[in-house]
Amino acid sequence: MTTDTNQIAGTASSTRVATGLFALVLGAFFVWGAGFAHSAALHDTAHDVRHAFGFPCH
């Protein structure tokens, strides 16, 4: 699997689901950090982006 260029459908579906879930959680973690975390440092850094995306802010 690591050396062969498998197509997505060719890989075992359990691996596919695991990768999908991993990507979903990692992506949600990123978005949470940039858009939702209550930390003052993160809020102030991402302030303009939070407003720009319409995330609830303040």
Binding site: I8, L24, G27, F30, R50
Partner: peptide, 18 residues
């Protein structure tokens, strides 16, 4: 913040497709 948000949403959209 744009980099992190972009990467996050890209991963999530890719994950949904997968």
């Amino acid at each position: 913040a744009n980099l992190v948000t972009g990467a996050g949403f890209a991963l999530m959209l890719g994950a949904v497709a997968l």
